[in-house]
Simulated scan of single mutants.
Amino acid sequence: MNNNNERILSKVPAVTATFWIVKIAATTLGETGGDAVSMSMSLGYLVGTAIFSAIFFITVAAQISIRRFHPFLYWATIIATTTVGTTLADFADRSLGIGYAGGTTLLFVLLMASLAVWYRSLGSVSIETVISPKSEMFYWVTIMFSQTLGTALGDWTADSAGIGYDGGALVFGSLLAVLVAAWRWTTISRTLLFWSAFILTRPLGAVVGDLLDKPVDAGGLALSRYSASAALIVFIVACLLLFPQRAPEDRSTH
């Protein structure tokens, strides 16, 4: 039993500064990559969601089936959740006509329901308890909902609230700074702070991604979605190579 726990625990990366840097880059890539497929390729939100959903299911299945932590597969799965989150949120907000407020509310309810069912089933939503295929499924479904919620929240803040993409980046960056301070200097639940930060990095990535590729007259920098996505991929790969990530309490050599 101990050996099995060690094997599964090694599939979850330690939460470090590099983890959060890569997470923000991955969420930004989700925005530019998702928009590249749905908008630049003119495939639409529904087709884009279908494509990224297939990638999501494939990467999650691979992640659950492996024996120990593989950083590139883990982050490929994260990127899959954030790209499908982008197109799914845009489909809900725009194609279904429920608007940013409606989409954000719906996705918040789904996220809370996922966490509630996870907690009721296994007694904890801490990432340190992701030690079985069942808990991994809850983990990835919750992440997918959090990424989708973050997209809708980022778009709602930047567009409907009228503060723009740079203003949205400042808002969400400031909120993350508050969470970092709470992590360092308070005794607030680490699980609550982790999921709060995980959710907030997505709207930060959403507004940064939009800042990069939206037209100048819309408040963006008008960069190519393809080149922005390629640059983010290179950055993520460089981070993983230069700052290797390991599982918490890695015991793979024992």
Rank of each mutant, 00 (worst) to 15 (best):
D166F: 14
A177V: 12
G173W: 05
V207E: 06
G205Y: 01
D210I: 01
I233E: 11
W156Q: 04
T148F: 13
L200K: 01
R190P: 10
V208R: 02
A181H: 06
I236W: 12
R202V: 09
D155R: 01
A181C: 06
L211W: 15
A169D: 05
S229H: 12
S229T: 15
V208M: 14
A181T: 08
T187C: 08
R202N: 08
L211E: 04
G205Q: 03
D159H: 14
L241M: 08
A206K: 01
A182P: 00
I233Q: 08
A152E: 03
S227E: 14
R246F: 14
I199T: 12
F145T: 03
D166V: 11
R251E: 13
I236K: 03
T187W: 08
G168W: 02
D210F: 04
T186W: 12
V237H: 10
L179V: 14
T191V: 15
V234H: 11
W183Q: 03
E249F: 15
S174H: 06
A177I: 12
A177W: 12
G168I: 03
L211T: 03
D250Q: 05
T148D: 07
P215A: 12
D210S: 12
F194D: 05
S196Q: 05
L240Q: 03
D213H: 10
A206R: 03
A161E: 10
F235D: 05
G150M: 01
S174Y: 13
A182D: 02
G220W: 00
D213I: 14
F172Q: 00
A218V: 06
T201R: 01
I188D: 10
L193A: 13
L153Q: 02
L175P: 00
A222I: 06
G168F: 07
F194Q: 02
W156M: 11
L242F: 14
L192I: 13
V237D: 09
L175W: 11
Q147P: 00
L170H: 01
Y226S: 11
S196L: 13
R251L: 13
G173L: 04
D166L: 12
T201N: 06
L212V: 03
G164W: 05
L200T: 06
S224C: 14
S160T: 13
L170P: 00
I233D: 11
W195L: 05
L193H: 10
L223T: 09
R184W: 12
D155T: 08
S229R: 06
D250E: 09
W195S: 06
L221Q: 08
W185R: 00
A206V: 09
A231R: 04
L192S: 14
A197Y: 09
D217I: 08
A231V: 13
G154L: 05
V171S: 04
C239D: 00
T187K: 09
L242M: 10
